[in-house]
């Protein structure tokens, strides 16, 4: 049975809930069982934000991820908070432009991607989340490339259709980055 328990965390405004949504819609496209659970409340406005995504071949029990096998973080407090919770053998994806410290654990795989720098270099400074997500998807294979594109087409509102290409470009940059 295939199941991914994913936590995506960082500051509010970094597009983390959106990244989770992209995964969730991709899962929907693949007909998988899934759940997406955001943190909510005033913390969303400038504080920390995170979301839990579960993609599974069976019914999702608790939508709350306590021990992720995939962790994507875009600030140091989130790495501090979740590092110890990652399942042994799990993967951590780190925006190394924003997080300077290294992962302390040795039983997980750490991927350091300067997502913010890559995004800035592409002229897409607000899409660091997509760069990091690209790396995550490529490495874990938790969803197919094709469903990722289908997901973006669904998640990006029609009036902002121009954002589709840019998001795909950022995702590709993440996939291409050789960590």
């Amino acid at each position: 049975m295939r199941e991914n328990q994913i936590i995506i965390a960082g500051f509010g405004g970094q597009g983390l809930l959106f990244s989770g949504k992209v995964l969730a819609y991709a899962g929907l496209h693949e007909g998988r069982h899934l759940s997406w659970l955001p943190s909510y409340g005033p913390e969303m406005r400038g504080g920390t934000a995170n979301c839990n995504v579960i993609l599974s071949d069976r019914d999702v029990g608790s939508p709350i991820v306590t021990h992720p096998d995939i962790l994507m973080v875009m600030n140091t407090p989130s790495l501090d908070k979740y590092e110890d919770e990652v399942q042994p053998g799990g993967s951590i994806f780190i925006d190394s432009s924003l997080i300077t410290r290294k992962v302390r654990r040795t039983d997980v795989t750490a991927h350091y991607i300067p997502a913010t720098q890559i995004a800035v270099d592409l002229g897409l400074p607000t899409l660091a989340n997509m760069v990091l997500l690209g790396a995550l998807v490529k490495d874990t294979g938790c969803i197919e490339d094709e469903s990722l594109k289908a997901s973006l087409e669904q998640v990006i509102p029609a009036r902002r259709a121009n954002m589709l290409e840019l998001n795909l470009k950022a995702l590709q940059a993440g996939k291409d980055y050789d960590a």
Binding site: K21, S35, L37, P63
Partner: peptide, 10 residues
């Protein structure tokens, strides 16, 4: 409850 309200599922 708040979780049911906020979470997304198919």
């Amino acid at each position: 409850d708040g979780t049911m309200g906020q979470m997304m599922e198919p």
